[in-house]
Simulated scan of single mutants.
Amino acid sequence: MTRIVAAGLGCRRDCPGAEIAALVRLALDEAGLAPGDLAGLFAPAFKQGEAGLTAAAVLLGVPLVLMPETAMKEAEPRAVTRSERVVALTGLGSVAETAALAGAGPRSRLLRARIASAHATCALAVSE
């Protein structure tokens, strides 16, 4: 079975793609991975139309996959970060972590818990 490394993302509206891509590269570097190890960028479906996410996927040369709410909710118990502010806004404890875990599959685990830049968050998960 092929290992899936997923970058889960959250961002504020109109976050620049370059900022998101730089954050993903930082997370990969901190996890000891190369950009070529990445299967894709994963974000919640409610972020559809967010130009910065699309731009980051182009910059990194990977697909952007929008995850349905059900997949995000199923992955949520495996997340390690919980923000009450994020819960109030999205219904999820951590958008980036749950997106990464959902993207990497039902038996995935976090490689890198959520990190943040000024306008985005990123977490990495790997399939088991």
Rank of each mutant, 00 (worst) to 15 (best):
S108E: 03
V86M: 08
R109L: 10
A31F: 09
G40N: 02
V24L: 00
R13H: 12
L92W: 01
L124R: 00
A99P: 05
L124K: 01
M67C: 14
T81H: 14
A31E: 03
A56D: 06
T98G: 03
A22E: 13
V86G: 02
L64V: 11
L53H: 01
L53R: 02
E30Q: 15
A57N: 03
L23N: 04
L23I: 10
G36E: 14
T2I: 09
R13V: 11
G49C: 12
A116Q: 12
R114P: 04
P77D: 07
L9S: 08
G61T: 11
F42V: 01
T121H: 00
T54Y: 01
A118V: 11
E76H: 09
A55Y: 01
T54S: 08
L124T: 06
T90D: 02
A118R: 15
E19A: 12
A123I: 02
A100R: 02
E128M: 07
G8T: 08
D37Y: 04
E69T: 13
V86E: 07
A45T: 06
M1S: 15
G8E: 01
A39M: 05
L111M: 11
T2M: 09
V5T: 14
T90K: 07
E74P: 00
A79E: 02
G40T: 05
L53A: 08
A34P: 01
R82S: 11
L53N: 02
G52C: 09
R12H: 14
L59E: 14
T2K: 14
M1Y: 07
R107S: 14
L33K: 15
V58K: 13
A55T: 15
G91M: 07
A18R: 15
G91K: 06
D37I: 04
A75R: 03
P77F: 10
A118D: 13
I4G: 02
A102I: 05
G49I: 12
A120F: 04
T54C: 03
T90I: 11
K47W: 13
A21G: 06
G32K: 13
A57Y: 02
V95W: 06
S83D: 11
P68C: 07
V95R: 05
R3L: 13
L66W: 10
L111A: 10
A43N: 05
E128G: 15
L26N: 03
I115V: 15
S94C: 14
E50K: 04
G36L: 11
G40W: 01
E19C: 08
R25S: 10
A39D: 07
R3A: 10
E50F: 06
P77S: 11
L59V: 08
L38Y: 00
Q48S: 13
L64T: 09
P63A: 12
R82C: 12
L66H: 12
T70V: 13
